[in-house]
Design a binder for these strands. Structure first.
Lengths: 241, 241
DNA sequence: TTAAAAAAACGTATTTTGTACGCTTAAAAT
DNA sequence: ATTTTAAGCGTACAAAATACGTTTTTTTAA
């Protein structure tokens, strides 16, 4: 039997790849975080040959019996200790010469995590660090491109779906939310109009607590109401921020 | 040496996949066309075992020395005879059990072609046919899902980028353009408002010809001005239709 | 002790964009 | 000649985005 996806050419060729030839599949994760007004990226410096000392995204081969997206989740868990976080396929990088010596393609995924939640020791033990996007060093292979593409997808998606909240603590203030979107969209927003817009979405719940860390006066904390958002979606709601 | 993408786990394992195990990579193409007010899809009925008689997307294995997107272009050329058409990666399907018997993942691409241009004989000779989206038969494997996902991407992308024109003849009328967007968005649009919106984008050039096929009165033909669009993009233009 | 500073929070005016829908025009069919 | 149909133009109204003034709360410095 032959994979039925490859339906036209070579459909009856059971040995499409020669015995001594192999195609590797890896996954790389673009892990975004947000703190102090800046988008950050989790990258690590390889400590073993080859490419020791080169910064790159975290990744792994996809195992033969493993779903590709499970591989990405596995990597993320290995490095950050985190489960159940926002993870979405970004793009597959399949240039024949993208990895010298081997034929290896990579299915990139991007993840959004809260910088308060991850396992700091685990991250350190893997030689991984958070870098501000602007201060990002040159990365290995086509990883720079992967970051650019993922950032682009994040920007587009954030505008129409409430994924920004994945990057903030459970409780956040309106000014914090604004800074996040300013970082994502790379432009300043008017605080008064942003507040109006954010509250008009009807998915923020005002709490009876204030956060004093950001300003003298302190700002009320809010949380994102996921159930409310789902309800609104059912009734044909069009989220846009 | 080891692929540097797979940077964390197993980085020093040169034989990540056992000698007798192989991972196949294929590409499948979701080929969209537009005619007579309907979006159409190019699918084909397998004529050889296994899965003979099952409808599926057109596709092929990715060769070892071939870029993944080149593989998609090759498939498209093989079946339609067309070069240089809109082709974009949609998503990678990597469930371990998606293709029974083999471990095969597929990098899906979607293409937009003009139904006037393709090589009819070539298409027929491959057992391929155009199906209206609504009348689409059940497809093999996860191809139904691929179609849904690609359609979703097409809808999102068409709203913010002028890719609709890839589906129309070089010269088209405003009512034709409207029918296209009605098919893409699956809802009716007001002809007067649509015309206003379309012309306000400043990327349509009115020609001195009329098309009489669609109505008694006939409607003026327009063409999409790609250069003008690029100019507008440079000056921070936000296309939206 | 009070005044100035800073950011949160609320409000209002103006402009832009979207939506609903009436009217005229051109050409074919009756 | 009149009716029919869709193209094409215009106008009124509603909703949303934008710009920006004002008040409130608290800290810090005079």
């Amino acid at each position: 039997m032959t994979p039925s996806s490859a339906s036209i050419a070579h459909a009856s060729n059971n040995d499409f790849y020669a015995d001594n030839e192999k195609l590797y599949v890896a996954t790389d994760c673009i892990v975004f975080g947000f703190d102090d007004g800046d988008l950050k990226l989790l990258i690590f410096k390889r400590r073993v040959e080859p490419d020791s000392g080169i910064w790159s995204l975290i990744g792994s081969f996809v195992q033969l019996d493993e779903d590709v997206d499970d591989a990405a989740r596995r990597v993320l868990k290995e490095i950050t200790g985190l489960d159940q976080i926002f993870l979405e396929q970004s793009k597959t990088y399949g240039k024949a010469d993208r990895d010298p010596g081997y034929r290896c393609l990579s299915v990139a995924h991007y993840a959004l995590i809260r910088l308060q939640d991850y396992d700091k020791e685990l991250v350190e033990s893997h030689g991984a660090y958070w870098y501000t996007l602007k201060e990002l060093p040159k990365l290995a292979l086509d990883h720079d491109l992967m970051v650019q593409d993922a950032l682009d997808k994040l920007r587009r998606k954030a505008r129409h779906q409430p994924i920004g909240f994945e990057l903030l603590p459970e409780k956040f203030t309106i000014p914090q939310l604004q800074k996040l979107y300013e970082a994502i969209y790379q432009r300043e927003l008017d605080p008064r109009n942003f507040r109006k817009k954010a509250l008009s979405l009807k998915v923020l719940v005002k709490l009876d607590e204030k956060d004093k860390s950001g300003s003298k006066r302190g700002a009320f904390l809010y949380r994102f109401d996921a159930e409310k958002y789902e309800e609104l979606l059912q009734s044909g709601y069009n989220f846009e921020i």
